[in-house]
Design a protein around this nucleic acid. Structure first.
Lengths: 118, 118
DNA sequence: TATACATATGAACAGATATTCATATGTTCA
DNA sequence: TGAACATATGAATATCTGTTCATATGTATA
């Protein structure tokens, strides 16, 4: 059984609008994943890490230096970025170099910058 | 005075990398604003609202119906979207119709979908 | 193999945030 | 003007999340 409508409005002619939009909505799972992805972008530290990596691949301690933050804090955030497949890494001796994994990221950020500029 | 370096690494030849990236980083304020914008996208309810509005302008109660949520919850989130200038609205009698304010939003979401699809 | 270096991780605390409930504001129409 | 409808909002609560601190893991070198 359906939940009752929130207003009279949707009980009349516009029922089809609601119905149509419901049908056109992407899968719940995809919507959830999108929100999860943006959640990762929704933190100043991670945004700064990503913007730093736009310029050059770097090791954890270099990133920490650029952002003037703790190695631990950076490492925790890199883990999040790694889980989301937003960064990749390569090992060179003791050092691990991180870089961006995906070209979509740049596009997304550019659009975000443009939205803010307006 | 500068904070000490996190590792030996950055005390040697790569100091310039750190220095160069530091210079190229966007302003702190812009980075903060970007994070704030993505924070807004980082919630399932708001993502669902936005995706619903991709299809058609709707009033608050219609959105509530589409998402099967409380009018109050939707109204709170619309306020957030309004503050970020992501939605605009028009009044028609008692009813207020919301729609998306910006074409960048669609681009950002499309790129996000593409990233997830991979 | 012992030591130093680079990175990762677990637990804990503090701060942020989404929903609910109750109610206020604003609009239409009889 | 009063009743009904549509939307907005304040306070409270429960949940989530980022940093710190301590420490563990992994690698190179003397």
């Amino acid at each position: 059984m359906e939940k009752e409508h929130t207003c009279v409005h949707t009980n009349e002619e516009n029922v089809d609008v609601v119905k149509k939009v419901k049908e056109l909505m992407p899968d719940e799972e995809l919507l959830y994943d999108v929100a999860e992805l943006f959640k990762v972008f929704g933190d100043t530290t991670r945004v700064r890490i990503i913007c730093a990596l736009f310029e050059s691949e770097m090791c954890v301690c270099e990133i920490a230096d650029v952002l003037n933050m703790t190695q631990s804090a950076i490492s925790h955030q890199l883990r999040v970025l790694k889980q989301m497949k937003l960064v990749k890494y390569r090992r060179d001796g003791k050092t691990i170099y991180y870089s961006l994994a995906d070209s979509h990221i740049q596009t997304i950020f550019n659009q975000a910058f443009e939205h803010i500029m307006e």
